[in-house]
Amino acid sequence: MDFRIDMSNGQPVGIASLDGRLDAENCGDLQTFCQSWLKETSRLVFDCTGLDFLDSSGLGTIVSCLRKSLEQDGDLKLAALSPQVSMVFELTKARKLFSIFPDADNAVRSYASGDKA
């Protein structure tokens, strides 16, 4: 899980790249990392380009990351969902909770146009 801060908007946006599988086995790692990322910025983007499998525990973790960033007046936006991962979001109606973008750049830019935080 790669994490970097993007300052192109003048404000820090944290971009995390998720890859491989996100399931019951490794979602704990994401939970831990997310805690530390939130210390740096509450505006997050999860770049899911390399994420090819998501199960309910993984989905639950992403939702809890969203909740924490919202608590800190930030947001969690998703980018580049593969069709399979996207289906999981649609099926469970979790799609309604997130802003979803075709790629990470768009997601980052959306933080600039929005006036939140």
Partner: peptide
Amino acid sequence: ILVDPRSGVSIAMEDPHLLSSLPGSAHI
């Protein structure tokens, strides 16, 4: 197995909790 006929993409819902909306803490 769930298939999107337009794109031909399919997923296998491998874990039972995916079959029941957003995961609640009760199961896990």
